[in-house]
Structures are given as C-alpha cells and as structure tokens.
Simulated assay, not measured.
Amino acid sequence: MRSLWLLGLAGLLAALCALSVTTGSRDVGWADIAAALTGGQDNIGQAAVSLRIPRTLLAVLAGSALGLAGAVMQGVTRNPLADPGILGVNMGASLAVVIGVAWFNIASAQAYIWAAIIGAGCTAGFVYTIGSLGRGGATPLKLALAGVATSIAFASLVMAVVLPRNDIAGGIRSWQIGGVGGATFERILPVLPFLAVGMVIALLSARRLNSLALGDEMAAGLGERVALARGVSALGAILLCGATTAICGPIGFLGLIVPHLCRLLVGADYRWLLPFSALGGASLLLLADIAGRIIARPAELDVGIVTAFVGAPFFIWVVMRQRIREL
C-alpha cells in the first residue's frame, strides 16, 4: 500500500510539473513546450516556457529539501512543532547572508551558500542549547519558544543591517519573502552538490531516526550512539536548509506541514516518511507556486507568501491538537 501511495505522489508531482510549465500570466500549448525544450524561442509562448522550466526545477528541489529537512528536524528533536522556520534556522541563514552581503561584499553563489549553511548550523545549535536549559531538557514547547524568539530577534537584526544600505535594501527585501521566480540553470547549478549531499545524509539517517524515536536510553541500549546520530542527521537538515535559503530566501512552514501530512499516509517509520516528505514537499511548493501565479494574474505572489497563508493556520492547529511532549 505504501508503495502505491509513493507512486501516486510521484505521479502527482509529474502532473504538477507539467501544469507549472503551462500555467502563468500566459498559458501555452504543447507545441510551444516541445519547441522550447529543443531550444526554440521564436515566440512569446516559447520564451515563457524557457523561463518556467528552471523555475519548476528549483521549486521541486527547494520543496523536496525543505520537506525532508522538516521531517529530519522533527525526528532529531522528537518535536512535532519542529520546522526550519519555527526553529529559526531559515532566519539564521538569512542573517548570515545579509551580513555577508552588507559587510563583506560577497557576491558569488558559492559565498551565499556557505554563508547560509554556516548561519543555519550556528542557529540550530544555539536554539537547541537554549531549549535544553532548565528542567525537562529540550521539550517541544521550549524549543518552539526558543526558535520563535530567535527568529524574531534575527529578523530585527536583518532590518538593522539592511536599513542603512539603500543600495542592497530592495534586493534583500525581495529575497526575504522567499520565492522561486527568476530561476535560471546558472543559479541552480552551484547549489546542486550541497542539496545532493544533504539529501543523501538525510535519507541514510532513517534507521538512526527510528532509533531516536524510541528514546535516548532505548536507542543507546540498541547500540546507537545518540549524540553522533543526532549530529549526522542534523547536518543533513542544515545543508538542505542553508542551501535552499541561499537560493530561494526563507520559505516557512513547508517543513512543518509536509511531514505531518505524510505521517497520515505512512505512519512514523522514517524509512518511508523521509522519501514521502521529499516528494510531498516538492509537490506542495510547486502547487503553491502555481497558485501564486493564478491568484494574482497578471502579476504573481511569491511562494513564501502562499505557504505562510496555509502554514500559519496549520501551525495553530498542530499546537492545539498536539498535547504530547515528544514524538
């Protein structure tokens, strides 16, 4: 049954990719799509398809990365509220990039990516440390509060860094919304190795996450090195979050929504949950991008706005529904 659900989700993603290429301010036919795939740009329709193909690819990559990272973070922290946005990881990556642009004049794609990954890693460690203080250790509530507080503080710091710099303010504010518009293959290529390594590490962490779900003492009794398991799994999530934020900006709530929906289909076994979360994240982000193009025609809404509209009520529902302290 799970295999059929996985095939169905892959089919849904393929259908959304086709819809993404054909839908926008100008609808195009299959003849224009076929011509654009062979490099043709003889009319406006073919030119539009040439722009939508890398945009679709970026949405698939970013969505799968964020969905996978959210599932891993929930497993590492055993926190049903864990998400790259809620835990402040995306905003930490954003702050690092903004500081790099404003103070160190970084301009290359590699510099953006490394800055974002370092910022994401430092923020993840900081939030987990703060959330672990006091009685009870790193409970879901304490981690969520530490993450939200850190995210708000870092957002204020981003504004403080950007405000005196009118030369970069416009571009930074647009990037902070989170979106996949303007994607090109040249922009996507530098981030592919980081996403590939992050996805491999995350997918190979399934057995470790299943052990961690039993509790630290039980996992240690089964021969699992708990600290190493958490560290390696978190590294995969940090690479995915940092690389995605560098190229798309911070996109919130996707890593929270997707793993919860996938658990309804496949349960809590991470051997199935992780690939489902990757496909589900790609499908949801692509659907959000398509919806943003349709709702605001002939303009468009960035995916960061669409996911926020969907994710905020979902977050409230999870908070009200989840009375357990850990997964």
Rank of each mutant, 00 (worst) to 15 (best):
M1K: 03
R2E: 13
S3I: 14
S3K: 09
A14K: 00
L19A: 15
L19T: 12
T23I: 07
R26E: 08
Q41W: 04
Q41F: 04
Q46E: 15
R52M: 04
T56D: 02
T56Y: 02
L57S: 10
A59G: 13
A62F: 09
G63L: 07
G63W: 07
A65M: 02
G67H: 04
Q74R: 04
Q74K: 01
V76N: 11
R78F: 02
P80G: 14
L87V: 12
S94F: 11
V97W: 10
G100C: 08
W103G: 00
N105D: 15
A109F: 10
Y112K: 02
I113W: 02
I113V: 11
I113M: 04
W114A: 13
W114N: 11
I117W: 00
I118S: 07
G119Q: 12
F126C: 12
Y128K: 03
L133W: 14
G134D: 06
G136R: 01
L141S: 04
T150W: 05
A153F: 14
F154H: 01
V158P: 00
L163V: 12
I168F: 08
G170W: 03
W175G: 07
W175P: 07
Q176A: 13
G178K: 12
F185P: 10
L189Q: 15
P193Y: 03
L195F: 08
M199G: 08
V200T: 09
R208V: 00
S211T: 00
A213W: 01
E217F: 03
L222I: 10
G223V: 06
R225H: 12
V226P: 06
A227V: 11
L228C: 02
L228K: 12
L228H: 10
S233P: 09
S233K: 12
S233A: 15
L240I: 10
G242E: 06
A246H: 09
G249A: 14
F253G: 10
R263D: 05
V266E: 05
G267I: 02
G267R: 10
A268K: 05
D269V: 02
R271M: 01
P275E: 10
P275F: 11
S277K: 10
L279T: 09
L279H: 03
G280C: 04
G281E: 04
L285W: 08
D289K: 12
L301F: 15
G304S: 08
G311P: 07
M320E: 02
Q322H: 10
